[in-house]
Amino acid sequence: MLSRLGVFSEECSQGALGKRETFFVPAGGSLSLSCVVQHCGGNWTGNWLKMWENSTSTTVENSARHRFTIAPVSANRSELLLKILSVRQSDEGLYKCSVKWSDGSNAVSHWKQVNVTKGVASQRKLLHRVLVCTGAFLCLPVILGLARCLSSEVKQQPHPRIEVFHADGHRDRSHQPPQPPPRRPVPKKRTAPPHKGI
């Protein structure tokens, strides 16, 4: 088609443009999915679909955790956004955007795989690591001080030997074994004088 200025204008073809992607998001985190709808200025409606394990799909409705918005990109294009807040295990699965044109025809984007991993949001992980490291640094001096106290040995010095001297200059003999008392001399028996004959 030739425009008034003599430049060929591109023919606009309607469609839902979204490439295949795989997302890994931790439980408790948030995720944004997007696809671009090329509507060429025509009327249309769009939404997000989720595929379940039994191969059935349902429309993702706006809720406290699921936010669906449409943002204009240009006169011919708009972006369909799905934001999942506080991701749960039940959010795992396949997602795609679906568009219905004013003539009743449909268009869909490629599937996007969402995998929910165990754990919490990265901000919580970071906060947890900071708290653990801070606690370790605060406890380290206390632990080192206790270890030093417990490992140090009190050096035993030999007690000085005390010797007690009496006034007479002799060493104290209180530690020597007791001596038997001195022996008394045995008294001599008296003999009767001899009787003189009368």
Rank of each mutant, 00 (worst) to 15 (best):
M1G: 02
L2V: 10
L2A: 03
R4M: 11
S9R: 11
E10V: 04
S13D: 04
Q14F: 07
Q14C: 00
A16D: 03
K19N: 08
E21W: 05
T22Q: 09
F23D: 00
F23C: 01
F23Q: 01
F24Y: 13
A27E: 15
G29R: 03
L31H: 11
S32N: 10
L33W: 13
S34V: 03
V37N: 02
N43H: 06
N43E: 14
N47Q: 14
K50I: 10
M51A: 15
M51F: 08
E53P: 00
N54Q: 12
S55Q: 15
S55K: 14
S57V: 10
S57I: 06
T58Q: 14
T59M: 14
V60Q: 08
N62Y: 07
I70E: 14
A71Y: 04
A71F: 06
V73T: 06
A75V: 09
N76W: 10
N76I: 06
S78V: 09
S78G: 00
E79V: 01
K83V: 09
K83E: 09
I84N: 00
S86D: 05
V87K: 01
Q89W: 04
D91A: 02
D91Y: 03
D91E: 12
E92D: 02
G93T: 05
K96C: 01
S98W: 06
S98T: 01
V99G: 01
K100G: 01
K100T: 06
K100L: 05
W101P: 00
S102I: 00
G104A: 01
S105V: 00
S105Q: 04
S105Y: 02
N106R: 07
H110G: 00
W111F: 07
K112G: 00
Q113H: 04
V114Q: 02
V114N: 03
N115R: 09
V116F: 04
V120H: 05
Q123I: 08
Q123F: 08
R124M: 05
R129C: 11
R129Y: 13
R129E: 06
V130A: 08
V130L: 14
T134I: 12
A136F: 14
L138A: 15
C139I: 14
C139S: 13
L140I: 06
L140H: 10
S151P: 00
E153Q: 15
E153N: 08
V154P: 01
V154E: 15
K155C: 09
E163A: 12
H166Y: 15
A167K: 12
D172G: 03
R173F: 13
Q176L: 15
Q176K: 14
Q176D: 13
P177G: 10
P178R: 15
P180H: 13
R183F: 08
R184T: 02
P187M: 10
P187T: 05
T191H: 11
T191E: 09
A192R: 11
A192G: 04
H195P: 02
K196N: 09
K196A: 10
G197C: 11
I198D: 05
